[in-house]
Design a protein around this nucleic acid. Sequence first.
DNA 1: TGGAATGCGAGAGCGGTGCTCTCATTTTCA
DNA 2: TGAAAATGAGAGCACCGCTCTCGCATTCCA
Lengths: 236, 236
Amino acid sequence: MTAAGGIRARNRAALEAEILRIGQQHLATYGAAGLSLRAVARDLEMASSAVYRYVASRDELLTRLIVAAYDALGDHVDAALATVPRRSSPARRFRIIAAATREWALANPHEYALIYGSPVPGYHAPAERTGPAGTRVQARLVVLLPELSGGRRETARDRRALGHLPETIQAELHLSSGGDQLIDAGTLRRGMTAWALVTGTVSAEVFEQFGADTIPDWPAFFDAAVDDALALVTNP
Amino acid sequence: MTAAGGIRARNRAALEAEILRIGQQHLATYGAAGLSLRAVARDLEMASSAVYRYVASRDELLTRLIVAAYDALGDHVDAALATVPRRSSPARRFRIIAAATREWALANPHEYALIYGSPVPGYHAPAERTGPAGTRVQARLVVLLPELSGGRRETARDRRALGHLPETIQAELHLSSGGDQLIDAGTLRRGMTAWALVTGTVSAEVFEQFGADTIPDWPAFFDAAVDDALALVTNP
DNA sequence: TGGAATGCGAGAGCGGTGCTCTCATTTTCA
DNA sequence: TGAAAATGAGAGCACCGCTCTCGCATTCCA
């Protein structure tokens, strides 16, 4: 018995997109562990074996969902940044990026878990596929750092910790924004630590690492943490 | 065909312990997603149905593994603290707790993922079972905070964020250590943020959230982050 | 001490999963 | 138009969580 109608008519790209869409839906509903290719196939009214024409494996679908999640977060952050004047203060932009990240994480906890939680099964998301989408938010942050940083105090330890990373970042910065600002190891190191503070706080809230209902006012807690993160970068 | 010999002889407690042990082994090897009751049963040379006499479900085993992971981390931190004089400075003790947490996380990434990563499947670890073991490290930290904190500056936002939490903690502190030190909302809030910074940094390393091989010297990066976390608490 | 109650392990079985293989059909294109 | 490629379905394999029943061993207790 052949499936209803029109399935065959949809072209490959549309079908791949629909598989991703249904996958996102299942991910949001059941979480990564509950994601099943067979269930996706059922929603598509296709035989489970047929979806393997479009997705090589479950891990392949998971990888696509990770990329999609990175992109969704990136879009959300960019949209938030777009609501604010182009040359608003870097501190304000930092706060907006942090707040948008928290918002998106709370609205999409399973997607957030996919990218900022533990790597799902035993499998390792291939960096060459998640890379470009995965660094969008960090890229938005890095461009703020030079202006944000009060002074370029850097320690020998900062330089040791990051090695040639500042120069690498510097080159990319130069290419993308054309800015000629200098990123020293201290600023970059503190910026990365500040971001770890933000994501650590978001994870604490989303994953209830302090226990459920321990923090009565998470928005206030988060704002305070973001202020601390900012102070970390601006007052070395 | 009945299993080899002596299985029946082991009493219930020993068998439960062995199930946990094999579970830990599988967890460390294959990760939480690869944990299978049937595979544990095979290692025990038992029928899969028989292990259900000792473990109600896979989630039940997972919950026990979470508790065990919390305890192992707590033991590791306590052991590290024990190598240092009883009245060493709170800053030194903070550093030891942070370093021990990182050590343990790197040595046991899957266990770390279980407790500081994303909540595993769709299931929610019952707080009444993970609670006592889950707060051991935090308890070690909290007792350091009053002495660590330079001044008790607290903002209205700190008080709003934490509500009655300081009093609750205070009462528990008084019971356990008998100390009469006061924890204000500012100190506690900054202490929790500092801990989020530490776990955020550990997660960044263990889960490769900055990308693989981005940070050339993680020990140096981590030490710098811990110094920032300490500064956050001591210099409000 | 002997019978009853309980504990325990094994096996079969249900519905689910990922994935592969084959086969028939459709579409594409030279 | 006819060969080649793409597509979908179905059967099937091995694995999973979990349940049920059955037989045997142990324990308890009258």
